[in-house]
């Protein structure tokens, strides 16, 4: 059974249709890159999978582990194992990152019927992952995303994903704004997370991040639809020729 399946999905904002019949399938363990020109609906697709309330689903379905999630709130989807690393993470003044992650992690554990993590267990869980992604203790104390550079915000998104250990990871332009060193840190962080039961949907315009986490499939999106699905060679076609000849 597919981990996540998107069937003929149509989504609107007000009168405007943005997703116009998306079909996609993610097998367990699969890394699937999504590429497409600006404005074709990639971020909308990510937000819709995560349950953003601004978009109305007018047709189609999203199945996660075999069940429709369309009627579920974003927190239920998250606790079932869907994680969205945002293209533009929002700032949360006054909300400390470590404190908030502890609440989030324990919310997930209680949803799954697991015991709460105490302070010591949590610190161990956190320090290990923070170190791997170059997140300093100072960054953990600061309010979420406030005053961080673009690249740091992306690293913090990856860190949160590593903390919550989701089954389905959506990375929306994770590589935009990263310098070579940050790209390496994030890339290695992702490749460590690759597991037989965990799938990745990686939205990108380039080959850079995919060097660290080889995609099994690549799909091209245009104007609210998937127009082609193929292998890694599609990435190189895009890099050389752009999106124009994909229709």
């Amino acid at each position: 059974m597919a981990l996540l399946e998107i069937k003929d999905l149509h989504a609107c904002v007000g009168e405007k249709e943005i997703l116009k019949g998306v079909n996609l399938c993610f097998e367990p363990g699969e890394v699937h890159a999504i590429m497409g020109p600006n404005g074709c609906g990639k971020s909308t697709l990510s937000a819709v999978i995560a349950g953003h309330p601004s978009f109305q689903i007018t047709q189609g379905d999203i199945l996660f582990k075999g069940q429709s999630i369309l009627n579920q709130t974003p927190d239920v989807r998250a606790n079932k194992g869907i994680f969205l690393a945002f293209q533009h993470p929002v700032e949360l003044p006054g909300v400390g990152l470590a404190q908030f992650l502890k609440t989030a992690l324990n919310a997930k554990r209680s949803f799954l019927g697991q015991a709460q993590m105490d302070g010591v267990q949590f610190m161990k869980h956190m320090n290990l992952r923070a170190k791997a992604l170059g997140i300093t203790p100072d960054m953990l104390k600061r309010p979420v995303n406030v005053g961080f550079s673009g690249g740091e915000k992306k690293r913090l998104e990856t860190f949160q994903m590593a903390m919550l250990e989701p089954d389905f990871c959506i990375l929306d332009e994770m590589d935009s704004g990263l310098d070579v060193d940050a790209l390496k840190v994030v890339g290695q962080g992702l490749s460590v997370m690759r597991e037989p039961n965990r799938s990745f949907m990686i939205i990108t315009h380039h080959d850079d991040l995919l060097q660290y986490i080889q995609p099994d499939k690549v799909s091209i999106m245009r104007d609210g639809q998937i127009v082609t699905t193929g292998g890694v060679d599609l990435v190189h076609q895009v890099e050389e020729q752009g999106y124009d000849h994909f229709r």
């Binding site: 349950g51 927190d75 929002v90 949360l92 909300v95 908030f100 992650l101 919310a107 997930k108 919550l164």
Partner: peptide, 23 residues
């Protein structure tokens, strides 16, 4: 957008509201 962000991390809407308002 702040509420949505916190919810995508697994907090219920009411938990998310409380965190934002306390801060």
């Amino acid at each position: 957008e702040q509420l949505f962000y916190l919810q995508t991390r697994g907090l219920t809407e009411s938990q998310a509201r409380k965190i934002l308002l306390s801060s």
